[in-house]
Simulated scan of single mutants.
Amino acid sequence: MTHDPYAPPTGPTSPVPPPVQYTYGAPLYDVPPLRSAAGLGTAAIVLACVLTAVQVVVLLLAPEGAAALRTAGEVGIPAYQSQFTAYDAVNLLYGALQVACYVVTCLWLSRSRATAVAANPKFIHGRSPVWSWLGWWVPIVSLWFPYQVVRDILRSTSRGPVSGIGGWWAAWLVYFIASRMATRAGTRLTPEATLQGADQLVTVEFVATFAMVVALVLWIRIIRDVTRFQAERIAVAERRLMA
Rank of each mutant, 00 (worst) to 15 (best):
L93K: 00
P121L: 10
R224H: 08
A37E: 08
F229N: 15
T105I: 11
I177R: 05
Q196N: 10
R239W: 04
R228E: 12
M212A: 13
F229G: 07
A79L: 02
T183C: 01
T2S: 07
R155H: 11
L69C: 03
S142Y: 00
V20W: 05
T203K: 01
A170C: 03
P33H: 06
Q196H: 10
D4H: 01
I124L: 02
G76M: 00
A53E: 02
I153Q: 15
I153M: 15
I222F: 13
L134T: 11
A215H: 12
S142M: 05
R35M: 05
H125V: 08
M212S: 11
V202S: 06
T13C: 02
T190C: 03
L34N: 09
A44M: 02
T52W: 00
P8A: 01
A193Y: 04
V217E: 06
S128G: 12
P121D: 11
S14W: 02
Y147G: 15
G126Y: 02
V16H: 02
T227D: 06
G160H: 05
A243E: 13
A100T: 14
V58F: 05
V31A: 10
S142C: 04
A38Q: 08
A170G: 09
P32W: 04
V150C: 14
A178C: 14
L47Y: 00
D199T: 13
T23I: 08
A243P: 04
A43V: 03
R228N: 13
G11K: 00
A53Q: 01
A182F: 03
I77N: 07
V56Q: 00
A72I: 02
V141M: 03
T105C: 12
R233K: 12
E238I: 01
M181Y: 09
R221W: 01
T194I: 09
G41W: 01
G126H: 08
G25D: 13
S156G: 08
N120P: 06
A119L: 03
A198N: 07
I223M: 08
Y102A: 13
R159P: 15
V202W: 01
R151C: 09
A116I: 05
A237R: 09
A7E: 11
I177Q: 04
R151V: 13
